[in-house]
């Protein structure tokens, strides 16, 4: 019994030592050397898993969605410009950085992507990650020297402040559903949302600009006894077959 206790304490001590050494950068050289190999192999494997057909499918979905949204976004931009002028807001341009996806769902605790950008590229936690010209797919949750982990919108812990492009411009919260679905929640019962309504980021969340497209309403779930209504959303792209993304620096 005593021997077992000593073994357990020894293991805990080594774990704590490793965490300490890593935190203060003593393992940087070793890790970056090994990661050169692991990241490269992961990237090759991930790219091999995405067939050309899937990429094409994603691109065509993206293109169709872009055309449909273009008009609405232009209208929004006009409205936005007027509001900014009125409030004397300075125009801020979002800068984005492209990244290759090198892996996905390695963590059993989440629906994630791994990208080949990290602290060395000024990537930070909570930065939004987009696909194409502005389709939000997730947020950065962990950053390493040359890689980062993106929590996808469909992850059970994902929460994004959103606006419905309906008459009332309803505010709500987009939450993930265990890697399977995305839901819009906290929409008051008296506001009208319909299948086909576009959902965008509301801009009420730090670091996430307004106007990034999240998806479209597919099914509205309205229960009279509940204070809020919910909607199941359809994303603009298959979140599991993405090869290139962009990180937005606000």
């Amino acid at each position: 019994m005593r021997r077992r206790l000593v073994t357990a304490l020894m293991i805990i001590a080594v774990l704590l030592l490793l965490i300490f050494l890593r935190k203060y950068g003593y393992l940087n050289f070793f890790e970056s050397t090994v990661r050169l190999v692991t990241d490269t192999v992961l990237k090759k494997m991930y790219q091999a898993s995405i067939t050309a057909e899937m990429v094409e499918k994603n691109n065509s979905v993206e293109l169709t969605a872009c055309i449909a949204e273009d008009t609405k976004i232009r209208l929004l931009e006009e409205e936005n410009t007027n509001l900014r002028d009125q409030l004397k807001f300075s125009e801020k341009n979002n800068v984005s950085l492209g990244a290759d996806v090198i892996g996905r769902d390695l963590d059993p605790l989440g629906t994630t992507l791994i990208i080949n950008r990290g602290v060395s590229d000024r990537v930070a936690i909570n930065q939004p990650v987009i696909l194409g010209n502005g389709f939000l797919i997730g947020k950065i949750v962990r950053v390493e020297a040359h890689t980062a982990v993106v929590r996808l919108l469909s992850d059970y812990q994902s929460k994004v402040a959103a606006t419905v492009m309906n008459r009332e411009k309803s505010l709500g919260l987009v939450i993930g559903g265990y890697g399977l679905t995305i839901k819009l929640d906290l929409i008051p019962q008296n506001e009208v949302i319909q299948p086909g309504d576009v959902i965008i980021t509301s801009g009420l969340e730090a670091g996430i600009p307004r106007g990034l497209v999240i998806g479209m309403v597919e099914v509205v779930e309205k229960k009279p006894q509940e204070p809020f209504q919910q909607a199941v959303l359809k994303t603009s792209a298959d979140l599991h077959n993405i090869s290139v993304v962009s990180i937005i620096f606000n």
């Binding site: 890790e31 390695l106 963590d107 605790l109 994630t112 962990r142 890689t147 982990v149 929590r151």
Partner: peptide, 16 residues
């Protein structure tokens, strides 16, 4: 140790 680099949580949780 290798696996923990690619997980969501802070380093060490999955490893421990």
């Amino acid at each position: 140790y290798l696996f923990d680099w690619y997980t969501v949580g802070p380093f060490g949780l999955v490893l421990s």
